[in-house]
Design a protein around this nucleic acid. Structure first.
Length: 357
DNA sequence: TCTGGGGTCCTAGGACCC
DNA sequence: TCTGGGGTCCTAGGACCC
């Protein structure tokens, strides 16, 4: 049989928890929750829970305090970015070492791999074996004829399995499922689709793209219809990703109350963002200040700035933006994002939404 | 003491220009 | 007394993903 092009989506199983178990084997089989500084009394959320902890209803994004309450015996660990990054790099290097593989990294623990083969399942098994041999980590692999189908397929392969999703079985497998299971459809959009009488993937697949434009706009409407069919790009793009910006944000363990506290926090936030930017040697062309007033209402203040601005000028601009902050309201979070100019040939974003996918 | 932190992209509406 | 229409840029707000 002739070689044909395939998209593989490789996704590490409970990645962060698995990395923690590797360096502390005695944790194997225990409910592990990783989040914040590992202190369930602090304002923080769960980054990852092991399968054992998930059985208690704990998932990522859940407040750490609540997660700890659900699993009294949980091992709660602080987030250790360095360790995960290092493990991730070993995984990605392993993928790039596979025969004729094109690798597009999507995050710490997942990547698309483009290949040409007559037997994608065999290739996928070889990838799993290589990753395990080099890192002691298990991964699941989705096989697809588009990026979207490969990505969705992985969920059916977990844990440590392989699953193939193509035009031939897409509707059989996905058609009866809620639209929220699609990559790029969340709670809000699935709710809006329901109001249009579209609850399942099959119904979305059958929708006329034009009919979705009034509700979702000229790009997103047709995009959702395409998503329902599992169609879209099928080319894995390994051109290096370039960040459009960098941001930092801090949730304060105690809400800030006075202007002096806010000023000091902004100064520190700005210097952290500028460090990240400086590491790339690119100018800053825009700033967005995010303010969460306690308990949870968020406002943003944005401004373009001249690309020639130096650190002092940028700090001045940040403080100007901050003059919009409403006096007298306690502040729970401050965030600052700095935007950088993009080279024309930069690869488009790393999420499935919109252009090119 | 409920609610992270780092990203991407789209949409709507107003300002401004021709 | 009537005040178009298209294009672009900017800001604010959302939605989603890992």
């Amino acid at each position: 049989m002739a070689d044909t092009p395939w998209v593989l989506h490789v996704d590490l199983d409970q990645f962060i928890a698995a990395v923690e178990v590797l360096r502390r084997p005695e944790l194997a089989g225990k409910p592990i929750i990783v989040g914040g500084r590992g202190d369930p009394n602090e304002r923080a959320v769960v980054s990852t829970a092991s399968y054992e902890a998930r059985a208690f209803g704990v998932g990522s994004g859940m407040p750490l305090r609540i997660a700890a309450r659900k699993v009294p015996d949980a091992v709660i660990l602080p987030v250790d970015h360095e360790a995960y990054l290092e493990a991730s790099e070993r995984v990605m290097a392993t993928l790039r070492a596979q025969p004729a593989a094109t690798v597009q990294v999507l995050g710490w623990d997942e990547a698309f791999v483009g290949i040409e083969t007559a037997d994608p399942e065999a290739y996928a098994r070889a990838v799993q074996a290589a990753v395990f041999e080099r890192t002691q980590l298990h991964c699941s692999v989705g096989i697809g004829d588009t990026l979207v189908r490969a990505k969705v397929a992985t969920g059916f392969g977990k844990p440590a399995g392989v699953f193939r999703l193509t035009a031939a079985n897409w509707l059989d497998v996905m058609g009866g499922r809620p639209t929220k299971e699609l990559w790029g459809v969340g709670a809000k959009v699935s709710g809006r689709l329901s109001k249009l009488g579209i609850a399942t993937v099959a119904e979305l697949a059958a929708a006329d793209p034009q009919d979705l434009i009034p509700e979702f706009g000229p790009r997103m409407g047709p995009w959702y219809a395409q998503l329902g069919r599992g169609e879209g790009a099928n080319v894995v793009d390994d051109t290096p990703w370039v960040a459009r910006g960098h941001s930092r944000e801090t949730t304060f363990q105690r809400d800030l109350t006075g202007a002096a506290q806010v000023h000091e926090a902004l100064r520190e936030l700005t210097s952290r963002v500028l460090e990240d930017i400086a590491a790339e040697g690119r100018p800053v062309i825009g700033l967005t200040l995010k303010v969460r007033y306690a308990p949870f209402s968020t406002k943003t203040y944005a401004r373009k700035i001249p690309a020639t601005s130096d650190g002092n000028e940028i700090l001045t601009r940040v403080l100007e933006l901050a003059s919009g902050i409403e006096a007298g309201h306690p502040i729970r979070l401050l965030g600052l994002r700095a935007e950088m100019p993009m080279p024309d040939d930069a690869r488009k974003g790393h999420t499935p939404t919109r252009s090119g996918w």
